[in-house]
Design a protein around this nucleic acid. Structure first.
Lengths: 340, 340
DNA sequence: TACTTTAGGGTTATCGGTAACATTATTTTA
DNA sequence: TAAAATAATGTTACCGATAACCCTAAAGTA
């Protein structure tokens, strides 16, 4: 590998002069600069970020930790983060925790070991708390995305899960539905809890009794095994007329299960969910969804993170909490129920 | 930041002893080892990968450069790569070139500067050649994924684009179609060229004359502007009865354009494409596709890369070229044409 | 008993950069 | 014209870790 010393030797200057040319610092005569540049080109010099970061004590690297790389919500979020990072001269690296607290821990260790300047985290759940405490302890700035973790104050970008759940339920009640079920992520995840809350409140507002048999708390990430959903249906005394899914992945799993039972959506079962399905939903605009601004989650979160990193010394800002609004996209997955 | 020197001081040993405990090398008494471990825990020590990589001259990092992070083909591929990397003790970082040769160049520079041990590249196109030459010149092992680049020999994992294009066309001809159009990625991309070739050969085998008005060469990545496809349709003397799309993104764009014109698939236009649409295709299993084994692209490619990295000194192996078979998934997007 | 091994650990140099300070001409200024 | 300022470059130390070599005391061996 070519180093600044090789350049220095060949150009007949000191390593420091080469460093100055590279970083455009200090005073360098045009002649020397030109000579150094020429030698750098000749030898195909590439600076070594690790050596540089080691002495500068900063890496110019941000890390984005998401929970499901196959979910368009997160990949779109990733693009937003990438654009914002690039705009500010940071590099962005990605990790994928698969909704697993253990994999998350591995990534946190890697992040600390690689000395990233900051982290964007969609936490796997409340059990992520120790990981965040680790980051805090090591003074690594971070911003939470999409989910909060009780016991940890920080900057955070959220959707309004409760309000949005309410909107989805009311969309259903306004179409005559009264037996409305909810399939949700783990109650260890803040957004799932709030979605349940919004669901319950909306039911109450519409004078529908809450029936816990109509609620299934499972996992947000795809599972090959659908039997849990099967068993949920089996437990019900009578099927609901509509289902709210806590995210897009769950909606798909519900549809698969329903199809296996020969139940059609929306004719025999209405369905709505959180988060759109990505570009491919346009093939057949079918599911009525709450479409969150995934790109903005990433873009704003990254800006907040960079602000925090560059704060350095100035008076500590209070934690910021950004709540992004979402639109409901009404499509064809909800049937209007006749009055009985 | 806590360093091994802090640990060493507090434990009353030398830094080298701490290093030995961390890496499990050399001879250390149980007593010393325990003491060092205790101090490491107390001080929340985290090793500094950059310092380590600097002296070891290897980073244990692989880099995966894909062209479209929102395309399920690539995210699934990424999971395969992630799993294989983890299995061998490598960390995997991702980058997203957006099908842009320029962004790709930025990433290549970053990769060199961060001294990744190896790279998996889905090249943006034939113009990626200089980037690959740069990697080669700096002796960074790499494996190409999904696309070849003329003029550059290397390990590569491919699908059989030509054969698969032939299959798609023959699926259409077997349903009575004769006027078959092709919308394809840039001819600067090897897979696109081969798909065109397969398309032409299949037409010839079925005694259909090739009509260049039926072929549109555009870009594989999503574009907000559909007017190019509009104009393509406008140029045709008569519309085809079926369209082959060079990838999933193009298929979606075709559907959007057709819908805007009030043309229904498959009733008035049949459509097939390369690559499945990810988990969400299960909501409405609609598009007939060639489903490539995206996960295997990533998994095998990573294994080949690691083999190459660890080869080190042993006789140079010849370049390996893995061609992964694909299945056609027949769904509902092709209509059977009556004989005229 | 005298000589080798071995266990257990320390010293020093180095990886590729950069900050901080030092040095030497050359100008500028009083 | 001597002192002060400036331009252009060099020297040294250090970032955090590890390899290679060195050292010492205890154990093994002829």
């Amino acid at each position: 590998m070519v180093t600044i010393y090789d350049i220095a030797a060949k150009a007949g200057v000191s390593a420091m002069t080469v460093s100055r040319v590279i970083n455009n610092t200090g005073k360098i005569s045009d002649k020397t600069r030109a000579k150094v540049r020429r030698v750098m080109d000749e030898l195909n010099y590439v600076p070594n970020h690790m050596a540089r970061s080691l002495v500068l004590q900063q890496s110019n690297v941000l890390f984005l930790l998401i929970t499901d790389i196959t979910n368009p919500f997160y990949t779109t979020l990733a693009r937003g983060a990438e654009d914002a990072a690039k705009k500010h001269g940071f590099r962005l690296l990605f990790g994928n925790s698969d909704e697993s607290v253990d994999k998350e821990k591995d990534y946190i260790d890697t992040i600390l070991a690689t000395r990233a300047d900051g982290v964007l985290v969609a936490p796997a759940g409340d059990l992520s708390l120790p990981h965040l405490e680790t980051l805090r302890k090591h003074q690594v700035p971070f911003v939470l995305l999409d989910r909060e973790v009780p016991g940890m104050d920080s900057d955070v970008v959220l959707g309004d899960s409760k309000e949005n759940a309410r909107k989805l339920v009311e969309h259903l009640t306004s179409h005559g539905h009264r037996r409305i079920a909810l399939i949700n992520g783990s109650p260890q995840i803040s957004s799932a809890r709030l979605r349940l809350e919004g669901y319950r409140e909306a039911l109450k507002l519409n004078d529908v009794l809450f029936d816990e048999k109509y609620v299934l708390e499972t996992a947000f990430e795809p599972r090959s095994d659908l039997s849990e959903i099967e068993r949920w249906f089996d437990r019900m005394d009578s099927l609901p007329t509509a289902i709210v899914a806590g995210n897009n992945v769950l909606a798909v799993e519900v549809i698969r299960t329903l199809h296996a039972r020969g139940i059609q959506v929306p004719e025999e079962m209405s369905l709505v969910c959180f988060d759109d399905l990505g570009p491919f939903s346009e093939i057949d605009p079918f599911l009525t969804v709450i479409a969150q601004q995934a790109y903005q989650f990433g873009y704003l979160g990254t800006q907040m993170l960079i602000d925090r990193i560059q704060e350095r010394g100035s008076a500590d800002q209070p934690w910021k909490k950004v709540v992004l609004p979402a639109d409901m996209i009404i499509r064809r997955s909800v049937a209007t129920l006749d009055e009985k």
